[in-house]
Amino acid sequence: MAEIQIKNVAKTFGAYQALHDINLTIADQEFMVLLGASGCGKSTLLRIIAGLETATSGEVWIGGRRIDHLSPKDRGIAMVFQNYAVFPHLTVFENIGFGLRMQKLPNDEVTRRVERTASLMHIDQLLKRYSGELSGGQRQRVAVARALAMEPDVILMDEPLSNLDALLRMEMRAELKGVLAESKTTAIYVTHDQVEAMSMADRISVMHQGRIVQAASPIEVYRNPSAEFVASFIGNPPMNFLRAKPAGAGKWTVAGQLFDGPTADKPELQFAIRPEDMQPAAEGLKATAKVVEPLGAHLLVTCEIDGSLFRAVLDSDMTVRPGEVLTLAPQSNRVRWFDPETTLAVA
C-alpha cells in the first residue's frame, strides 16, 4: 500500500511563496497528474515529495510513514527526470541496474530485473550501448526502465515526455500509461500539457500560483471546472465567458437572451460554455462571425457576442462567411456559472 498524503505543505524561496498550504491525498496505485503552467509550483511539489527540496512547513506521508525528514534514497520512490539523467559513463544495462547495485542485490537478481524491465520498455537490444549512442526517445525509455527496475512504491515523473517530438510523445504516452497500470505503482506525473494530463490521469490536480485549484477526474475537470482558471486553462480552445445580469429568481440575461441559472443573489455572474457545446438554432445568442478556420474535423469560428470574443466549434459541413450573423444555442446541461468576484463556480 502506498497512499501518499501531503499535509499543509508550503514552500518559500526567500520572499517568494512557491507553494501555499498544499493538501492532497493520492490513493494507492492511482495515476495523479499535476497540471499547470510553468512556475505554478508543480515541479517544486514533486521535488518535495522526492526529497530533492525541503518543504518550509508541512508533512509528507507515504504508505502511512512520515517521510519528509528522510533522504531521497530512503523514501521508497523512483524518479524520471525531464532531461532523462541517464548516466553517460555507464551502459544501458548498468544504468538500469544502478539502483539495484546500490541495494547490493545479488548479480543474477540484478540481471533478471534489468532484463525484465528492459524488455518491458522495448530496449533489450540496447543493453550494451552508452547513452551517447541513444536517441532521445531511447534515453527516455532507459530512464523509465531504471525507475521501474527499483520496484518503488511511488514513481515520480517530471515532464518526462516534454523533450520528445510530437509523434513520439503520443506513442510514449499510451505506452507509459499501460506499463504503469501493469506495475501497480502509485504515480505522480508533472506536466504542462493538458492533452497528456487528460489522456493519462486517473485524477488531475490543476495548480495555479502555488495552490491546487481543483483535484478531480479528467472528465470532471473538463465538464465541471471549479474555477474560472480551470475553465480557461483546460480545453483547446478554452471555455467561453459572457456577462450575465440577474433577471428575477433563477433567471439571467446574457446578451439579450434569458437563461435559467442559479438562484444566487449576485449583481453579476459569468455565463460559461465550451465552444463545442454551441449549436446553430432558430433561437439563441446572436454572434457575428469574425474569423473562420476550417480545421478538417470541424469548423472553428471566432465571433463576437455582446462585445466579447466567443469561439464556437461547428460541424465542418457548414459554410460560414466572416461578417455573417449566426444564431447559436448553448446546450443547456453544459452551461456553467462563475462568480466574477471569487472566480469560483456557482451551482
Binding site: G51, P72, K73, M79, A85, F98, M150, L156
Partner: peptide
Amino acid sequence: PIELEEAAWTLGCTRLTAFQKV
C-alpha cells in the same frame, strides 16, 4: 547536470556515494 546527481540520490546514493559513482 545536477539531475545526474539527483537521479543517483533517488536511486539509493548518499551525497558522497553519488559523487563517487557518478
